[in-house]
Simulated assay, not measured.
Amino acid sequence: MARLLRIAAASAVTAAAAAALTGCGLQPASSYVPAAAPAAITAHHPKPGPPVVVTSKQFTEQLILGKMGVLAAKAAGYPVTDLTNVPGSVPVRRLMVSGGANMTWTYTGTAWLTYLGHRRGIPNPQQQYRAVRDADRANGLTWLPVSRENNTYAIAVRKSFAKRTGISKLSQITDVPPDQRTFCLDSEFNSRSDGFTPMLRHYGIPRDSRAGVPRGSVHIFDIGAIYAATAKGNQCNFGEVFATDGRIASLGLVVLKDDKRFFPSYNLSPVLSTDLLKTYPGLRAVYEKVAAKLTNDVMIELNRQVDVDGREPANVAFDWMVREGLISRP
């Protein structure tokens, strides 16, 4: 009976995620991925069992990583269900905890602060990873070794704005005239515990105050629109960005230094259901091989190919995995 209830709950969460996609006017990511053959990721010939259900959030990097997760499992011979492009961190987490999905890529900072409810990040990246890994065992999740990628949040400005105002670090926001302290954020960053308001508080900058960030100076955008809005400067001079986003350089933006070290490390790791790994222990080696090759420079380039060149995330993931010798063309 407990198993039936768990399956029913997982199905309900999956349906809710699909409904959320429709309600936001978004479509689920295409289930298309190119056909992939083994290479460094070898064929495992697993016994018949449940599918590897890969999920991801909806922004570019997560879509690319989600497709890597799908391609890696398929190349190794596992049954796969593509459940990528879920809007927001919390719905993805619910899918993973409920059993509606069993493989994703997660950032240590997101897990520690948003999922596990801690107020502050751990400064040392490895200590942060170990703390998250150990805490999530109770949730039936296994964190594989962390990658070198650190996709932390950041605040960026136009190069011309930085030059004109002399701003290069977050503590200098108050050096800018009050009417020019305008921000473009996405709704999640605006409300999360490691987001905008706590960042301002950390730097001693009051929100909704002329002494800090005046009322009405914060504009909410979809995450993909923030970069262009910040580059144009019509509605905001400061924009929330991800450190590995390929649009930062291509749009002439510069990242302000987090000189008081507010943002925690957001190192990336493959996270799988512990039950799934018991069924398919070979998946550990599959995803460890992919994670070992991921760095900030790698993801900046892959993200650029999608966001600037307009390529399909599945093709970007596939071509990179082939070049790295992880998979091969059939």
Results as ranks from 00 to 15, higher is better:
Lys67Asp: 15
Val308Ile: 13
Met1Lys: 13
Asp179Leu: 13
Val271Pro: 03
Pro51Glu: 04
Leu276Tyr: 06
Ala40Ile: 13
Trp112Arg: 05
Gln126Arg: 10
Thr104Asn: 05
Trp112Lys: 08
Leu294Ala: 01
Ala162Cys: 10
Tyr287Ser: 13
Arg329Asp: 06
Ser31Tyr: 02
Phe189Cys: 04
Ile248Arg: 01
Leu65His: 11
Ile7His: 09
Gly246Arg: 06
Met96Tyr: 01
Gly23Leu: 06
Leu268Met: 12
Ile226Leu: 02
Ala35Tyr: 00
Pro264Met: 09
Val97Ile: 14
Lys47Asn: 11
Arg148Thr: 07
Pro145Asn: 05
Ala12Ser: 10
Phe183Tyr: 13
Ser89Ala: 14
Asn234Leu: 03
Ser31Glu: 07
Gly224Met: 03
Ala9His: 14
Ala16Asp: 10
Arg6Trp: 03
Ser171Val: 11
Asp186Thr: 09
Pro206Glu: 04
Asp179Lys: 12
Leu5Ile: 15
Phe189Leu: 01
Pro330Asp: 05
Arg323His: 14
Thr182Asp: 07
Gln128Tyr: 01
Val70Glu: 11
Pro79Ile: 05
Ser147Asn: 10
Gly233His: 00
Tyr280His: 14
Thr230His: 03
Gly99Ser: 12
Leu170Ala: 03
Leu65Gly: 01
Lys74Ser: 12
Leu141Cys: 03
Trp320Thr: 06
Arg329Ser: 15
Gln127Leu: 10
Tyr287Ala: 12
Leu95Phe: 15
Arg93Thr: 13
Asp319Cys: 05
Phe59Asp: 14
Thr295Val: 08
Gly195Asn: 10
Thr182Tyr: 05
Thr55Arg: 11
Val52Tyr: 07
His219Cys: 04
Leu5Arg: 14
Ala8Arg: 12
Glu301Tyr: 03
Tyr115Leu: 00
Ser11Met: 06
Met321Lys: 06
Val316Thr: 15
